[in-house]
Amino acid sequence: MTAADPGSEPRPAVPTASAAPAQPASPDQPAAPARYHRGRRLTGRVLLYLGLAGFAAFLLLPFFWMVSSSLKANNEVFTIPVKWIPEVFHWENYVDIWTVQISAAASNMGSWLKNTMILSVVVTLLQLFTGSFAAYGFSRIRFPGRDTLFLAYIATIAVPWQAYMIPQYKLMSQVHLTDTLWSIIILQAFGAFGVFLMKQFYETIPEELSESARLDGLSEYGIYWRIMLPLSGPAIASLALLTFVRTWNDFLGPKLYLRSPQNYTIQVGLKLFQADPMGSSLYGLMFAGSVLSVLPVAVIFLLGQRYFVEGVATSGLKG
């Protein structure tokens, strides 16, 4: 995947100082709050923490309910009145979820997690690459029809997927991609969302940077790779995270395309525990699986979120 790196230009290892004359030297704390009024700030801080803690509880409540339900027996999940704490803790749900056979073909939580991980990683990387690459074309190179093309891109987001998913499925079926992980990769990797997002962030990067890079003999591909990408760290990070989560949680797409249980993603697999209205649903197990499926995403977020608060200049120019 070196398409972004056409290697004919003489390239310095690190952008020269002249490549970034307009970019100010960055302080260690961008967007830092006021540093005076220390006494008042302490009370302010305590109040802020208290407020945030209450707010966090409000945000995490459904997750708490999920955890609680995952420790209940199947017919005790939905009751009147609501039981927030299980009477008997069914810890075995967390053991059974790894071994229980819910479909006829051999597949389980482990294989679903593996498939979901593969899809999320590949889709995210493809979306990042093609999105940021195309965004450069839309934001920095002027050619006739550009704006119309861009608007068409954005407008297609407005067509609900369920309206064209059957024609799309027929298409994929003709090239025999249904029931392979490829189908989901192709389906998810080329959206307009990433293009639009990256284009908006490129517009905050001063044009003078590219100009001086051009004078230094860098090609457009070189500018994309050496100037624009490094300077759009937070945008890349947020696009990566959002794409990852969306692919991770996607239901209808994988449901429609991945038919063999060994190809299932985690969301499709867990749905098997919910029977149709005639049968009995294994809700305890289903929520145990749901809790487990959230954890990888939470860890990735926790690790990755520092990239959102590191100033662009910091991450970009401190080689």
């Binding site: 995947m1 498939n115 593969i118 990683v121 590949v122 990387l125 493809l126 392979t180 992980l181 990769i185």
Partner: peptide
């Protein structure tokens, strides 16, 4: 990613 997708498919 490339390696992963190849093995996956």
């Amino acid at each position: 990613a490339t390696a992963l997708s190849l093995t996956a498919c």
